[in-house]
Design a protein around this nucleic acid. Structure first.
Lengths: 161, 161
DNA sequence: TGCGATTGGTTTGGGCCCGAACGATCGAGC
DNA sequence: GCTCGATCGTTCGGGCCCAAACCAATCGCA
């Protein structure tokens, strides 16, 4: 949200429009930078790692969750990935048509659908994830304390729930 | 990406699949938490502040940039907002049809288009932004050092460019 | 001055994204 | 057994999202 302009300049402009209100500019800067970072990182990873494999961001997240947990119910994937079940339904259909995942109705509960990776899906993830992690390392290389960075982000996530 | 499961459990699963490779789990956790936070914050703000005004996230960002800078070229909006010019073109059409912004071809350069807020657009932002900032304050209330948090996020953004 | 290269915004096509509505299934309590 | 409420995945409609193709305007450079 806040961009090439300086922070001070942005504050000045906001103050000019809402001078009579008390605002929290530090909070504004943090939220703004959160989205700039997430956007930049996502675009970067999509271009460098995902595009060559013809995968979208969300498709990769779905594959990742299924890969880690081997056999997952769709509701779990949606919760872990942070998107709606409606979105997941479409992405799963795409991945299924490409032969990367398989849907199977649960035997113990007829409402649930279990998802697993096909052999092709597992092979793809095994090749992709190391590249992905290399980029993650590069992206965070200038972050001093990774542990406290993760904790800070978790604090924001929790504060919204 | 990483969700209800514990971090240690996730690492164990990844290690089981890629045990022979060196991975950076701390970097993985930071990137993962970055997206969880951004998703959670965005969804929260959309539901609490934006939905009542019938605005999407991107539409609000566009309005915000134009509001701050009064008269902006579309290329600037796209750069500040962090999305493509193709996306912007569609969102601007939506906002224009709702009477919140106006497009005007630049007089000095026939390729450029300047965007301004209408009176209705300014009125909307004046009412909306204080609510938005209140939520931003609440979201960051458990972050100890807002300054270093913003710096950390900036470091990640810069590392991808 | 002329013309190829660059820049800027829009359009197009395909995919993601959500809330709401829907049909199927399950389970608690009678 | 039966029913009512809750849960699950899918579908639908509308909007966002991007890359690539496109056209108009401008610039660079001889």
């Amino acid at each position: 949200m806040a961009g090439p302009h300086t922070l001070a300049e942005t504050e000045r402009q906001v103050q000019a429009r809402l001078g009579d209100l008390t605002l929290d500019f530090e909070a504004m800067a943090v939220v703004s930078n959160l989205f700039r970072a997430a956007n930049a990182v996502r675009n970067h990873l999509e271009r460098t790692v995902l595009a060559p494999a013809d995968l979208t961001w969300t498709a990769f997240v779905v594959l990742w969750v299924v890969w880690i947990w081997d056999r997952v119910e769709t509701r779990t994937i949606a919760a872990e990935g942070g998107f709606s079940k409606a979105t997941l339904s479409g992405v799963l259909s795409t991945l299924e048509s490409r032969g990367l995942v398989e849907r199977a109705r649960s035997e113990s509960d007829g409402r649930l659908v279990d998802v697993t990776l096909t052999t092709a899906g597992r092979k793809l993830m095994r090749g992709l994830f190391p590249q992905f992690n290399d980029e993650e390392r590069a992206i965070t290389r200038h972050v001093e304390d990774l542990g406290s960075a993760a904790a800070m982000l978790r604090a924001m996530t929790l504060a919204t729930e």
